[in-house]
Protein backbone atom coordinates (compact mmCIF):
# COMPACT_ATOMS: atom_id res chain seq x y z
CA UNK A 1 0.00 0.00 0.00
CA UNK A 2 2.96 2.28 -0.47
CA UNK A 3 2.23 5.60 -2.02
CA UNK A 4 3.48 4.63 -5.47
CA UNK A 5 4.27 7.97 -7.05
CA UNK A 6 5.38 10.47 -4.49
CA UNK A 7 3.72 13.88 -4.90
CA UNK A 8 6.17 15.96 -2.98
CA UNK A 9 6.26 18.73 -5.58
CA UNK A 10 3.90 21.45 -4.48
CA UNK A 11 1.34 20.65 -7.22
CA UNK A 12 -0.92 17.63 -6.93
CA UNK A 13 -0.99 16.39 -3.32
CA UNK A 14 -3.57 13.63 -3.34
CA UNK A 15 -3.79 10.57 -5.56
CA UNK A 16 -6.29 10.62 -8.42
CA UNK A 17 -8.34 7.42 -8.62
CA UNK A 18 -8.72 6.33 -12.27
CA UNK A 19 -12.30 6.55 -13.62
CA UNK A 20 -12.39 2.83 -14.48
CA UNK A 21 -11.87 1.83 -10.85
CA UNK A 22 -14.54 4.26 -9.63
CA UNK A 23 -17.21 2.92 -11.96
CA UNK A 24 -16.09 -0.66 -11.32
CA UNK A 25 -16.40 -0.26 -7.56
CA UNK A 26 -19.78 1.42 -7.95
CA UNK A 27 -21.14 -1.46 -10.04
CA UNK A 28 -19.69 -4.00 -7.62
CA UNK A 29 -21.47 -2.29 -4.74
CA UNK A 30 -24.81 -2.27 -6.55
CA UNK A 31 -24.48 -5.95 -7.47
CA UNK A 32 -23.49 -6.89 -3.94
CA UNK A 33 -26.51 -5.02 -2.56
CA UNK A 34 -28.74 -6.99 -4.86
CA UNK A 35 -27.00 -10.22 -3.84
CA UNK A 36 -27.40 -9.59 -0.16
CA UNK A 37 -31.12 -8.85 -0.55
CA UNK A 38 -31.64 -11.98 -2.59
CA UNK A 39 -29.60 -14.04 -0.16
CA UNK A 40 -32.28 -13.67 2.51
CA UNK A 41 -34.65 -15.68 0.33
CA UNK A 42 -32.48 -18.80 0.79
CA UNK A 43 -32.79 -20.17 4.31
CA UNK A 44 -29.31 -21.06 5.54
CA UNK A 45 -30.34 -20.84 9.19
CA UNK A 46 -27.62 -19.36 11.29
CA UNK A 47 -25.42 -18.76 8.24
CA UNK A 48 -27.64 -16.01 6.86
CA UNK A 49 -26.43 -13.48 9.37
CA UNK A 50 -22.79 -14.30 8.69
CA UNK A 51 -23.32 -14.21 4.92
CA UNK A 52 -24.95 -10.80 5.16
CA UNK A 53 -22.10 -9.61 7.34
CA UNK A 54 -19.49 -10.98 4.89
CA UNK A 55 -21.11 -9.14 1.99
CA UNK A 56 -21.34 -5.96 4.09
CA UNK A 57 -17.63 -6.24 4.99
CA UNK A 58 -16.72 -6.67 1.31
CA UNK A 59 -18.81 -3.64 0.33
CA UNK A 60 -17.38 -1.63 3.20
CA UNK A 61 -13.78 -2.46 2.31
CA UNK A 62 -14.45 -1.53 -1.33
CA UNK A 63 -15.74 1.87 -0.24
CA UNK A 64 -12.87 2.39 2.21
CA UNK A 65 -10.08 1.28 -0.14
CA UNK A 66 -11.24 2.96 -3.35
CA UNK A 67 -13.81 5.64 -2.70
CA UNK A 68 -11.90 6.84 0.38
CA UNK A 69 -8.63 5.95 -1.39
CA UNK A 70 -7.15 4.43 1.74
CA UNK A 71 -5.26 2.11 -0.57
CA UNK A 72 -3.27 4.99 -2.02
CA UNK A 73 -2.89 6.89 1.23
CA UNK A 74 -0.23 6.91 3.89
CA UNK A 75 -0.33 3.65 5.90
CA UNK A 76 -0.82 5.73 9.08
CA UNK A 77 -4.41 6.46 8.07
CA UNK A 78 -5.28 2.81 7.60
CA UNK A 79 -3.61 2.05 10.95
CA UNK A 80 -5.97 4.56 12.60
CA UNK A 81 -9.04 3.05 10.94
CA UNK A 82 -8.14 -0.58 11.66
CA UNK A 83 -7.05 0.36 15.20
CA UNK A 84 -10.50 1.79 15.84
CA UNK A 85 -12.12 -1.42 14.59
CA UNK A 86 -9.99 -3.46 17.01
CA UNK A 87 -11.40 -1.51 19.96
CA UNK A 88 -14.93 -1.86 18.58
CA UNK A 89 -14.42 -5.63 18.44
CA UNK A 90 -13.05 -5.63 22.01
CA UNK A 91 -16.09 -3.71 23.31
CA UNK A 92 -18.65 -5.85 21.47
CA UNK A 93 -16.92 -9.09 22.34
CA UNK A 94 -16.77 -8.56 26.10
CA UNK A 95 -20.28 -7.05 26.33
CA UNK A 96 -21.70 -10.03 24.40
CA UNK A 97 -19.81 -12.64 26.43
CA UNK A 98 -20.84 -11.16 29.72
CA UNK A 99 -24.50 -10.64 28.87
CA UNK A 100 -24.72 -14.20 27.53
CA UNK A 101 -23.17 -15.52 30.75
CA UNK A 102 -25.68 -13.92 33.12
CA UNK A 103 -28.69 -14.29 30.82
CA UNK A 104 -30.21 -17.25 32.78
CA UNK A 105 -30.64 -14.97 35.80
CA UNK A 106 -32.72 -12.40 33.95
CA UNK A 107 -36.42 -12.36 34.94
CA UNK A 108 -38.85 -12.34 32.01
CA UNK A 109 -41.87 -10.26 32.95
CA UNK A 110 -45.22 -10.76 31.28
CA UNK A 111 -45.52 -9.22 27.86
CA UNK A 112 -45.78 -5.44 28.07
CA UNK A 113 -48.77 -5.38 25.73
CA UNK A 114 -51.01 -7.76 27.65
CA UNK A 115 -51.55 -5.86 30.90
CA UNK A 116 -52.29 -8.61 33.44
CA UNK A 117 -55.56 -8.36 35.33
CA UNK A 118 -55.08 -8.41 39.09
CA UNK A 119 -54.46 -12.03 40.01
CA UNK A 120 -55.10 -12.42 43.73
Amino acid sequence: MTNTHAQEHSGEVGHVVPMGILVGVWLALMVLTYVTVVATKIDLGELNLWLAMLIAVIKASLVVLYFMHLRYDKPLNSLVFVGGLVFVALFLGIALTDSAEYQPDVIHQEALESLPTSNT
Binding site: F87, L90, I94, T97, D98, Y102, D105
Partner: peptide
Protein backbone atom coordinates in the same frame (compact mmCIF):
# COMPACT_ATOMS: atom_id res chain seq x y z
CA UNK B 1 -8.99 -0.54 27.52
CA UNK B 2 -8.96 -4.15 28.67
CA UNK B 3 -9.79 -3.71 32.32
CA UNK B 4 -13.05 -1.79 32.83
CA UNK B 5 -14.82 -4.78 34.38
CA UNK B 6 -13.07 -4.41 37.74
CA UNK B 7 -15.61 -1.70 38.53
CA UNK B 8 -18.34 -4.32 38.22
CA UNK B 9 -17.10 -7.30 40.26
CA UNK B 10 -20.16 -7.13 42.55
CA UNK B 11 -22.60 -5.72 40.00
CA UNK B 12 -23.91 -9.06 38.83
CA UNK B 13 -21.28 -9.45 36.14
CA UNK B 14 -20.69 -13.13 35.38
CA UNK B 15 -17.98 -14.91 37.39
CA UNK B 16 -16.04 -15.75 34.24
CA UNK B 17 -15.75 -12.08 33.29
Amino acid sequence: FLVWGHHMFTSGQSNMM
